[in-house]
Computed example of a mutant assay.
Amino acid sequence: MTYLPLVNGERTYLATWMDLYSRKVVGWQVGKTMEDELVILPLRRALQWRQPVTGLIIHSDRGGQYVSAELKELL
């Protein structure tokens, strides 16, 4: 997750999920706040699109958004 400065002086946030094998971004979301949904929505889309097999390994920096109950349930 990173922030993107805007020309008006404000900032927005970008969360991405990358498939480290293919080095492709498989899910992303831009939002005004760093709420849990900023990482959950792109992960849902990535899982739907890639349909990984059982045993998928997820790695994150363990920031607050990555330890939410909703994300744990999704995983």
Results as ranks from 00 to 15, higher is better:
T2R: 03
P5V: 12
P5A: 15
L6A: 02
L6F: 03
E10S: 14
R11C: 09
R11N: 09
Y13A: 08
A15T: 04
M18Q: 13
M18W: 00
L20I: 04
R23A: 11
V25Q: 06
G27L: 00
W28S: 10
Q29F: 01
Q29S: 12
V30S: 04
G31C: 11
G31V: 13
G31Q: 12
T33E: 08
T33A: 15
E35Y: 01
E35W: 00
E37W: 00
E37V: 02
L38M: 04
V39I: 15
I40L: 09
I40H: 11
L41P: 00
L43I: 08
R44G: 01
R44W: 03
R45W: 07
L47F: 07
Q48V: 04
Q48K: 13
R50G: 07
P52E: 08
V53I: 01
G55T: 06
G55R: 08
L56H: 05
L56I: 11
L56V: 07
I57K: 11
I57V: 15
I58H: 10
I58G: 00
H59A: 03
D61K: 03
G64Q: 05
G64H: 01
A69R: 15
E70G: 00
L71E: 02
L71S: 02
E73F: 05
E73T: 15
E73Q: 14
L75C: 15
